[in-house]
Design a protein around this nucleic acid. Sequence first.
DNA 1: ACTATATATGAACAATTGTTCATATATTAA
DNA 2: TTAATATATGAACAATTGTTCATATATAGT
Lengths: 117, 117
Amino acid sequence: MMKENIPEFLHLTSAQARELSKRMPPEETLYELADLYKMFADSTRVRILSALRVQELCVLDLAALLGISQSALSHQLRILKQAKLIKYRREGKIVCYSLADEHVESIFKQGLDHVRE
Amino acid sequence: MMKENIPEFLHLTSAQARELSKRMPPEETLYELADLYKMFADSTRVRILSALRVQELCVLDLAALLGISQSALSHQLRILKQAKLIKYRREGKIVCYSLADEHVESIFKQGLDHVRE
DNA sequence: ACTATATATGAACAATTGTTCATATATTAA
DNA sequence: TTAATATATGAACAATTGTTCATATATAGT
């Protein structure tokens, strides 16, 4: 008796595999998703966002608040800025950072809910 | 005239800083949050989760579907398993993986919404 | 123009992370 | 027991990433 190319259960035919793929978001979208989550995947950045959730802050205040160097902070702010998760405004010598929009808040909240169980 | 220790605007007093800190989640929670998002911060893992959202799959099917080596996949499955984002069940020689709970689905969905704008 | 203050950035370094390769373990069938 | 199949894992390596240090740019005050 000829062996089926689909062992009893749970081995996909290529037709099934194609169907499954169709039900997944496009590759490109998944890469963007990973990139988005990368922003939240570092504790320094999470702490920065967590502070900006409360209120707008300038760089030195933020650095003092979190206990990190101005340089390290500035590098991270640039990364968050490029990802459009934060925005800034200049006030003389000072630059004030805040969250870019409510999406950031909602992603943050969602994660918090999960972590708190 | 004595200089104030609070420059005109946007420099916090230590009392203000303490108030701000109180309104942030505890440090420990923020580290856990970053760790959670780390799981979603790699495109391979996102693709794995994305497939398991559709249906339960065994290791070899998943590897074939995503076009990655069995070894690389197995390593990533272990990471996701440890983070309790996926669960598994043994069916003879085969091990079937699926999402651990609806939380994973809701985090995934939230991120997708943001990426799609 | 010079000094002080606030922020940004390039380069080097250390640490973390994902993949590969080889091999181990587990289950089933002969 | 031996062979075949499915999955797991340790070690090595390459790539990525976050921090530090030094320095650059920008603004305001004297």
